[in-house]
């Protein structure tokens, strides 16, 4: 590596400028947080970093009789998975059907357009009325949240398939169903995968909100709202950090698969 002209600072060796610029803002936020918490001196508004770290350092410890951070996060994650799988199970076949068949498209399109702009959380009261408090109503809301991004991306993906791919398959002797499995699905897979990634992100946001519904008794959202009722702001912040980290981690997993499996989409000219 070449050193820039002038006096190289010793810390450039440990922290190159490119890294520095990325961690600058987090450092500023952390320092201001610490300073503010000392100035405000009220843990019910802004607890100190140490108190949040203390909560995070014991992720398996019971908090206020409501279960641990990790335990509740796993409950939330399992709810998301159920809702997400239901959404994907409906949206992917429907999207393929709509993209491939004009009649199917016309039958569903108008109705779906009406439902699409409704935020998932607007369904909360209805979900409560229909399914009462519990897994079912939460799964319902999560599934609605994940459904549309998956559907729209599936539609997009299938429509963007090159016509000559399916035609080549046909002239090579593939039957309609074989074309679907061997050309349409793999050809649309990168875009469908993007839909799944976005859908999972939204589902993850929905679960936290759904768990704040009155009467819930587990999940990371529940833990946060309980901590609020007890004035435990450091737990709220710890919970928020956990939500962020899990969301980021899952998004990262999606991206890894994308890079491994769907590289051809970027490279195919």
């Amino acid at each position: 590596m070449q050193m820039p002209p002038g006096k190289p600072q010793w810390w450039h060796q440990i922290l190159p400028k490119s890294v520095l610029i990325k961690i600058a803002l987090p450092i500023i936020i952390i320092i201001s947080w610490e300073v503010l918490s000392v100035l405000i001196d009220n843990p019910f508004i802004l607890p100190s970093i140490e108190s949040v770290l203390l909560v995070l350092s014991e992720p398996f410890a019971d908090i206020l009789g409501s279960g641990s951070l990790v335990g509740n996060a796993l409950v939330s994650l399992s709810r998301v998975l159920i809702g997400f799988i239901i959404a994907a199970g409906l949206a992917i076949p429907l999207g393929i059907g709509m993209a491939r068949n004009g009649k199917v498209h016309d039958f569903f399109d108008a109705t779906l357009q009406v439902f699409r702009p409704i935020p998932p959380l607007a369904w909360v009261p209805l979900a409560l009325a229909w399914f009462r408090i519990g897994l079912l109503s939460m799964v319902f809301i999560i599934a609605i949240g994940a459904f549309f991004p998956i559907l729209l991306n599936t539609l997009d993906g299938v429509k963007s398939i090159k016509k000559t791919w399916t035609e080549a398959a046909h002239t090579l002797g593939a039957k309609e169903r074989q074309v679907l499995v061997n050309v349409v699905l793999p050809g649309a897979a990168p875009t469908i995968w993007t839909g799944l990634r976005v859908g999972f992100g939204i589902a993850w946001m929905c679960v936290v909100a759904a768990e704040m519904m009155p009467g819930t008794n587990s999940g990371i959202g529940y833990l946060i709202i309980t901590s609020y009722n007890w004035g435990q702001v450091q737990v709220i912040i710890a919970g928020i950090i956990i939500i962020g980290v899990i969301g980021l981690g899952i998004d990262y997993l999606f991206k890894i698969v994308e890079r491994k499996k769907f590289m051809w989409r970027e490279l195919d000219r």
Partner: peptide, 18 residues
């Protein structure tokens, strides 16, 4: 309809990139 007695080769190759 398409029959495997005749195969078409397209100008854009249309290989399956995956």
């Amino acid at each position: 309809g398409p029959t495997s007695r005749m195969v078409m080769i397209f100008q854009d190759y249309s290989l399956f990139p995956w």
